[in-house]
Design a protein around this nucleic acid. Sequence first.
DNA 1: TTTATAACCTGAACGC
DNA 2: TGCGTTCAGGTTATAA
Length: 275
Amino acid sequence: MPELPEVETVCRGLNKIIKTQKPQIEGVVRSKKALRFAWPRGFQQKIKGAELLKVSRRAKYLLFETTGPSFLCHLGMTGNWRLENEKYTSKTHDHLQLKLQNGRTLIYNDTRRFGFFDWVDLKHLETSKWFSHLGPEPLDAHSFNADTLFQASRNKQVSVKVFIMDQKVVVGVGNIYASEALFLSGILPTKKAGALTQKHCQKLVESIRQVLSLAIEQGGTTIRDFKSAGGSEGYFQQKLNVYGKSGESCPVCSKAIKKAVLGGRSTFWCSRCQK
DNA sequence: TTTATAACCTGAACGC
DNA sequence: TGCGTTCAGGTTATAA
């Protein structure tokens, strides 16, 4: 499901909830099923009674800061959060319920259970298990720019599509936005990363930023099951140029959009606009 | 070391 | 209608 814009949208939604609700966690109910990994040790007991202070994002991870221990949540492919009133009927695949002081409940739902939770030490985030190998944030011009991308791509034999989806290179670019950013930059997804010029990298960095920023503004992309914490769907889908449009006309030159599998993932491009 | 593939899990969409 | 197959936004483990 979620790439960086979707996670950012969920993050903003959760913070809005924290500001408007009384975010003390009075009760915790979690499903017996494990998600991608087992639940963190003592999860229910340790966060019960804590107050939610803030949610932030690093890469595709949500970081929950509380008055007790802090924890992270990765949404996997189908994870999402929603806020329910006092009376509600739980839905299939609701895996975590945080009962708040004001009677409302914050719920994590995840159909495919590819998401997961873990404890996190926010003071030593960048050296911790989940974060030590991560590349720069794409919207941070200091750590992610044409120079860093060009250097990282030297001698790489993988396709540029697979390369920009590598979280060690840059975080947050998933399958949809990789195709979209390459379309904007006019670069063929199958081009080898090592063949990128400095100019290509400049254009690619700009395109990645542009596509992610616009998607955040639009509240992410709703393909099948993405919803923000407030329950609203994203609108970026209406702005997609090539993703999921195999056989349709290129919005620029009208040539039919092509599709192929790269790195095991569907990839879409225009063979006339992208070289 | 780098790159490719399979696996995790569920449900929607599609073809027959 | 019903059944079987394929595919899906992420990440990791294993194989090549």
